[in-house]
Write a protein that binds this DNA or RNA. Structure first.
Length: 583
DNA sequence: GCCGTTTTCGGCCCGACTGTTTTCAGTCG
């Protein structure tokens, strides 16, 4: 069992306990433990294998009881409490509480009074008009349940951040046309740059809040209005994306932005801190507990300052130690877009790219880059017209000539001869040593045999690293968000080996990949492995994706010094040369 | 179930909206 598996068991335990009517704080502990486990950079399995129970101590939010259950799951692959609860509560009820408007109390009442066990039973009872007869329910809620079930059965759960970005821009422009809005921002997981978003939160500072609500629900793409109040409303768009809005006075914009950016765990920690300081923190501002006087709220910075903290970047707000770090003055000086000096993963028309070497180089120069590595595929990736030995040798000549031309034109830019070499199933590389030795930089990636067992895949990649030829491991887990799960590989072992050989790991910035993810970045930093933030650009348009990589790196607490391609050219070449001498 | 610069017991973030109620519980973020 890996961290996500353990987290989902904890989430289900929380839901099941809640359905049983267990004490809410016990429920919350399991829910919190799930969030903590999900966000851990280290694999619990690996930690436990190395250090036993002692290695699992000191994780905030994981106490004696949940630690015991984690160990149980690691040892047996299951959890007795979870199994017991599933036997007691109909598993189908886990779906019932996901219906919008239904929580544990109402679900339990439906179960008790009508014998409802799952979504289908719920739908049937609602269709027959049985639900409206129950105390606490009525005709309106019955109809809402019916719609909710249909919605749940059809809706895609998560959206890529890039889609949400598109909606955010259009919606904001539309709302502003209605006038009277002084500030508008998208908050939530979107602002924290999570790789996927469940819904979009919009915050608007304005005088006439009801009229903004009115305009909000009139947006042409709205399929359904979930709720509409004087300051807060929710809609579902035709695409299925839920959008929430909150209108607020300018005076409270910073506090509201802080609040609606989350994460929930970060906010709870912040509010607890405020409370201990004799303050009250809400979306309206920071108030004195004593006399209720308003202390701060117009700017986010002011809110943090009022609770005695420096500003914490949204990317860090996951309650993964950022508040403690802020208190102790050890917040990272996060990587910035402008720190990136070049792109080390770029395709051209020679393999499966859509722009030529010249066009890609032009685009990279326009971004102010100093270098770009051309990393066309090797022959194993036939579908992408991978290069065989003759073709890559000829490409090297073309690049040499191109660089000569740049030099004559006094351009401060260089194209690095490279390849995205396939790591074959047996861990060998898909170019000969002769070719590999001639390249300036080598990116190596797995493109086949994704279904290997963990030990096999780990062995495969480690064997490739041990050839000593790999400068960067490309998209290390092979995942495609919403399409393909990451393959099974012991990341910590791979990183330890990479560290020995001076090999960096790529953070592939494609919004569908983001591979490494944020937790892996934290792990890389801890293990002392450099990260290359690259775009894997297959066209000039893709260079802009670097933004996604940079923000993911920020979520992983990475700084300029942790990034291979934040080095100026001379320094990059020094690192590569030193690595080659060591092989 | 977790946790400790008020605490090893007794707390545990804060507020809006909805639908069903006549003052609020449940749900949601």
């Amino acid at each position: 069992m890996e961290n996500p598996d353990i987290a989902s068991v904890f989430l289900e335990i929380a839901d099941l306990l809640e359905l049983k009517g267990a004490e809410i704080f016990r429920v919350r502990s399991y829910r919190n433990a799930a969030v903590v486990v999900e966000g851990l950079p280290e694999s619990l399995k690996a930690l436990y294998a190395q250090g036993g129970e002692a290695a699992l101590k000191g994780i905030p939010g994981i106490g004696e009881s949940t630690r015991g259950r984690i160990i149980e799951m690691l040892q047996t692959g299951g959890c007795a409490l979870h199994a017991e609860l599933l036997a007691e509560v109909s598993p189908g009820m886990l779906d019932v509480i996901k219906v919008s408007g239904l929580g544990p109390k109402k679900a339990a009442s439906l179960h008790e009074k009508l014998g409802i066990k799952d979504l289908n039973g719920l739908e049937e009872a609602a269709a027959k008009g049985l639900i409206r007869e129950l105390p606490g329910f009525g005709k309106v809620s019955e109809e809402k349940i019916l719609r909710g079930v249909k919605e749940l059965k059809s809706r895609a759960r998560v959206f890529t951040r890039s889609y949400a970005a598109h909606v955010a821009v259009s919606y904001a422009a539309y709302l502003k046309e209605g006038a009277g809005i002084s500030d508008i921002a998208a908050a939530g997981s979107f602002r924290r740059w999570k790789e996927t978003v469940g819904d979009l939160d919009i915050l608007a500072a304005c005088q006439d809040q009801p009229s903004v609500m009115e305009r909000f629900v009139q947006y042409p793409d709205v399929k359904e209005v979930l709720s509409k109040g004087g300051t807060k409303s929710s809609v579902v768009l035709k695409s299925g994306l839920q959008v929430d809005i909150r209108a607020i006075e300018k005076k409270s914009f910073g506090a509201a932005l802080q609040y609606f950016t989350g994460s929930k765990a970060h906010n709870v920690a912040l509010r607890e801190r405020a409370k201990k300081m004799g303050l009250k923190l809400s979306e309206y501002g920071v108030f004195s507990e004593k006399d209720g006087s308003w202390l701060a709220g117009e700017k986010e910075e002011d809110v943090y300052a009022a609770v005695g903290l420096p500003y914490i970047a949204p990317e860090l707000r996951e309650n993964r130690g950022e508040i403690e770090a802020a208190l102790e003055g050890r917040l990272p000086a996060l990587l910035k877009r402008s720190d990136i000096r070049g792109d080390l993963h770029v395709h051209t028309t020679e393999s499966d790219g859509t722009n030529s070497l010249e066009e890609m180089a032009e685009a990279a120069m326009k971004l102010g880059y100093e270098y770009m590595a051309v990393t066309d595929h090797s022959k194993a990736v036939g579908i992408a017209r991978g290069l065989d030995e003759a073709r890559i040798l000829s490409q090297m000549n073309v690049i040499d000539e191109f660089n000569e031309r740049l030099k004559r034109q006094k351009k401060k830019f260089i194209v690095l001869k490279s390849s995205e070499v396939d790591i074959r199933a047996d861990g060998t590389l898909d170019h000969s040593e002769t070719v590999l030795r001639k390249l300036d930089i080598v990116v190596a990636s797995v493109h086949s045999g994704f279904n290997m067992k963990e030990e096999e895949m780990t062995g495969r990649v480690i064997k490739a690293v041990r050839t000593g030829f790999i400068d960067i491991i490309g998209h290390p887990t092979g995942r495609l968000l919403g399409e393909r799960e990451p393959f099974h590989m012991d990341m910590a072992s791979v990183m330890d080996e990479a560290k020995k050989y001076g090999t960096a790991l790529e953070l592939n910035s494609s919004p569908e990949r983001l591979d490494l993810n944020d937790s892996h970045c934290m792990l890389a930093k801890e293990r002392g492995v450099l990260v290359a933030v690259s775009t894997d650009a297959h066209s000039t348009r893709h260079f802009g994706n670097i933004e996604y990589g940079v923000h993911t790196a920020m979520r992983g607490w990475l700084e300029k010094k942790d990034i291979l391609n934040a080095r100026p050219l001379a320094s990059l070449l020094r690192i590569l040369k030193k690595r080659r001498q060591g092989r």
